[in-house]
């Protein structure tokens, strides 16, 4: 049986890899991928806590399911906005998103 610590370490590494990617990537699509990594880390966390610590209920699993659905909806609208930007400037690098500063 795998210890709960190992599973939590995996999810924490995923989470902070996502945060790192969010802060360092230059392409908006890569940023979106990083955010998805973060959201998946939380889903894993819910599932692990539910399975290992509170096996009686299903609250964690349900939360993970809903969060997957909702993050899919959010990514859809994010990609829609990026396609719109691409149509206008033929580029989706964050460096190009600088019309408004300070």
């Amino acid at each position: 049986m795998i210890q709960i610590e190992y599973l939590l370490i995996v999810s924490a590494v995923m989470m902070f890899a996502g945060v790192f990617g969010f802060l360092t990537r230059r392409s908006t699509l890569a940023i979106l991928l990083s955010v998805e990594l973060m959201l998946n880390a939380t889903d894993l966390n819910f599932a692990v806590f539910n399975r290992m610590l509170y096996p009686d209920g299903y609250e964690g699993y349900f939360f993970a399911l809903f969060s997957i659905a909702i993050s899919a909806a959010e990514s859809a609208i994010a990609i829609a906005i990026m396609i719109n930007i691409y149509r206008m400037i033929k580029n989706i690098q964050v460096d190009e998103l600088e019309k408004m500063k300070w």
Partner: peptide, 30 residues
């Protein structure tokens, strides 16, 4: 373009903050 740029900034930050919020909720659940 300004509107699209604002939308991109808003959705990326909203996703990021939701992920942090969810991680917090998962720890509280734990």
């Amino acid at each position: 373009m300004e509107s699209a740029e604002a939308g991109a900034k808003f959705i990326l930050l909203a996703l990021f903050s939701s992920a942090l919020l969810l991680y917090g909720i998962s720890l509280i659940y734990g």
